[in-house]
Each structure stands twice: as C-alpha cells, then as structure tokens.
Nucleic acid binder design. Structure first.
Lengths: 257, 257
DNA sequence: TTTTATTGCGTACTTAATACACAATAATAC
DNA sequence: GTATTATTGTGTATTAAGTACGCAATAAAA
C-alpha cells in the first residue's frame, strides 16, 4: 500500500478501527551528550514538529495504546510511561496547522470527518534509554529525531504546552521516584547520573552530597570496574539493584534537592 | 418533560449534544463532623452508588464541563477542581452494572448506541465547603448524599478505584498545596484545621508542631475572636490570607508530615 | 471556688540538608 | 620515568528542618 492510499484509508476509514474524539500524545525523554532530549516528528502534512502520538484502537486499553504507539516510533518494548494530563480544550486543534493539513493532503475531507472533529488528547511522558531507541518515521512522517529540550523547533497545535507540562511533571516526579534507571545504560558512573539529575532539574548539585543522598536510597550498587575518561582518577561504574529499584518504584522515595 | 421522555432523549439523542466515548467523573470531598466525606449518587437505573459525573458538551472545555456538572450537583460555582487521572480500560463499563441498567430502563437500546460503546472517563477531584454545598439529585438520581470516606457503599463500575486514586492524590497534594482553604469555612480554629489534616492523612499530628509548621507558611492570619467550645481555654479563630494563599497555590509549598 | 479539658507558647533533642576540605589517581606531557 | 592536570572518593563541620515533650493559662461546668 502506498502513502496516498494509506492516508486515504486512515482519513476515511480510521474511525472504524480507532475511538473517535480521542488521541494520545507522548513526550519521550532521552539523555545524550549531557542534554535532555525529546523525540519529535515532522509530518508530511503538517507545518511543524509534533510529539509522537496516535489513536486508541476500539478495544484497547489507553496505556497499551501508548505503548504500541511508542514501540512503532522507537522500537522499544515495556517503556516507562506515565499519564500526566488530558488536554481538553475544544479549540486545541483549531490552529493554522489544521488549514495547512487540508491543503497538504489534497483530499475532499468533509467537516464531519472523524479527524476534523474535536479531539481530546491524553498526554503521557516516557523515559527511554537514548542509545537503545531507534527513531522510526512512519509513512506520513517526513523526519523523526531527537531535539534538545532547550532548543525546540516550532510545534503544531498545543504541543508546546504539552512539552512544558511533561517536563514540569518529570521534574516533580524526580523528587519521589528513582528515575535514572530508564534513561541511563545498564552501568554508568556517578558523574553521569549526577549530570542527568542536574539536566532535568536545570540546576547544579553538589557532587559529594549528591553521592551521599543517592547511595542512601539503597537502590544502587557499586561495581568493581572503573570507567577510563581522561587524565585523572577514574570513576567507578554503578548499576541499579533491580529488586530494590522495583520496591522504590512502588513505595516511593524522599529526595530533597 | 418527565423522567421517561428525558431519559429517552438522553439515551437516543445525547450524542448530538455530547462528545461520545468520553465522560467525566468527580470525587468531591467535604469535611464534616471530623470526617472526610465524599459525595455519591444512587441512580434510578443502576445497582450501586456512583461518583457525580456526566458528559462533555460538543464545544465545551473539559474543565468547564467538570465545573458545570458539579454546579448541578452542589449548587456551587468556581469549585476547586483538579484533573488527576484518565481511566481508559476498554472493559471498565462491562460489569453487572451495565446489565442492570438495560433491565432498569426498559428500552430497546441497540449495541451501537453511544452509551453502550466504550467510554474513557476523565477523573477530577474537588474540594468543597461541606456546609455550603447542597447535594442535589437530578431526574435520574434516586439519592444524592455525603458518605464517610471510610464507610463507602458498593460503587458501580470502576468508581471504587477512582475514589482510591483520588484520595491518594489528595494525600500527596497535601504536602505541596495549601488545601484547607477549600474545605473549611471562612474562619476556623487551629484544632479544626489540624483535624482536617489528620483526617486526610489518616494519622495523628502533634498539636504544637502542626501550629508552628502551618503558621510558618505565612498563609494564615490569627483573628482577635475566640471560639467557645467547652469547659476549657478557647481557641482563636484563624482565616486564610487571600493574597498569600493565592501565591502559595501557584508557587507551591513544602510541608513535611 | 474548684475541677476539668484544652489551648498557647516554649525548649530540648534528633535527623536531614548544605557547605566545604583534602588525599588519591589515571592519562598526558615532557 | 616523573611531573602535571583534572577529576574522583571520602570525610567532617555547620546549618536548617523535623520531632518530642513541658507547663502555665483559661473558659465553662460542677
């Protein structure tokens, strides 16, 4: 099936498979080069970048739908995903992006088409390991790539608002939930973990106090191995203790930065 | 319009006014007799108690819809309302309650009717001043009343889960947001405020430390007047300082119970 | 006038958060 | 080899926040 027929099918028959009036949008965070990154797509039929998103199948749990959508965009299973807000402004799609879409698709879409109606979007944020994720465009996507959270391109609809709120939520969660596990490779050094926290919170932390606090949580274990990173003392590798980490996820923690 | 024709109209024409596949359910909290209460309805056509809820009008913001729904049930305007979770299990309505409904309404409802389809519900929690709210049943409601949060009746669908999560959210919020304002009368005593916090957190707090901490936030002002409550020293009245309270709402606070 | 339960205010103790010091060390330069 | 350099590992002192508890004041009832 080529792009044109698939697009046609999605527009005119999508409501048969998907729940109308609802969508999902995901803010997918990654960490690379000491920067917090977010995954964005540029659609062939829209005038800006967008959060990865999609629709919910007729008999699908919304959490499963979010997992499915992100599997298609990143190749990853069992992603750390959290619902953070549902966006329900009736005019959230009534921007110039909509007009651009109508011009771009070159199809006679009636106003009562399921995609032209008011859509409420459920916002999720996700944490993924940058190096394991493979940004994957679909047929309707021109580009799919990571962007530094501090240098975002123009986003469509209300997606800038969605990113703002997702980041705020992540920052707040950081104080109760052990978050590094989903964003870092299996083993990592203490300076790397600290940089991650500093990047998300957007403020510097004291190296020695950070180590004390994070080790005090009891979810990390120090390895024998050290990482060679320059003309100076080499830091040890650490990894999350799976069992204690899972416990901390359900019980919650108390940081205090 | 009598009950039967209004019900008929809602079932068969409701989708013209309301967004299908979506609903709103609200956990409305009040405080009375040193108990945390929640507002529940018993529908004429359902076999248990339910959270007050409803549907979103075609061109209505979801937050406005929640306000409208609660205005109808309590008579109150500008209620403190917060979205806390969207419930999207495709089978959340497929319980015995649905069968009971079909028997009770005695109408030939086809399976493709908008109320028979899968509905995703947006959960809000609300805080209201018990004495100012007037529980108001609608045409389809048999009873509408406050229930002690610790002695709830059988609830329909997934409403028990909704209540659980709303309470958990409220408890968590209590640590960052000045919450008493919405649940207490304009002026109140320190023991009353403390009782509210103890009730929500479900644990005792030290009287003297509580006073220190709560006054340290700078959102309360002590009045000259005292309340006469028994054969012992009379407590002062306090009230929220409107300006500082609003500031605290946006800035957030840091408690630590 | 005494009794009673409770309030207002205060002080000691413990724990958590913050600030800062210094020796150890791995790659590089010479 | 040996000195240089930037960074890491570990520790201690200080400050702030949280917890535990004491006691005099007092308003209504006995």
């Amino acid at each position: 099936m080529n792009v044109t027929t698939e697009l046609h099918d999605f527009i005119f028959n999508g409501h048969l498979n998907y729940v109308p009036h609802l969508s999902i949008d995901c803010a997918v965070f990654g960490f690379h080069d000491n920067q917090l990154k977010i995954l964005l797509l540029r659609s062939k039929y829209l005038d800006g970048w967008a959060l990865p998103g999609g629709h919910i199948q007729r008999n699908e749990h919304i959490d499963i739908a979010a997992q499915r959508i992100l599997k298609e965009r990143t190749g990853l299973d069992k992603i750390f995903l959290k619902q953070y807000q549902t966006f329900g402004d009736p005019d959230r799609l009534k921007t110039q992006s909509s007009q651009y879409f109508l011009n771009a698709v070159q199809l006679p879409i009636p106003p009562n088409n399921w995609l032209m109606e008011r859509i409420v979007s459920i916002g999720y944020y996700a944490l993924v390991e940058f190096s394991k994720a493979t940004p994957t465009p679909d047929l309707f996507t021109e580009e799919c790539d990571w962007w530094d959270i501090h240098q975002l391109p123009a986003l469509i609809f209300d997606h800038d608002h969605m990113v703002d709120l997702a980041l705020q939520t992540l920052q707040a969660q950081l104080h109760y939930q052990p978050i590094g596990y989903n964003l870092l490779p299996d083993k990592f050094t203490m300076p790397e973990l600290q940089k991650l926290y500093e990047t998300i919170l957007d403020k510097p932390l004291d190296r020695r106090n950070f180590q004390k606090k994070i080790m005090g949580l009891g979810i990390l274990e120090k390895l024998e191995e050290r990482k060679s990173v320059g003309p100076h003392k080499s830091p040890y590798y650490y990894r999350f203790n799976e069992k204690n980490y899972q416990e901390a996820l359900t019980e919650g923690l108390s940081f205090g930065f």
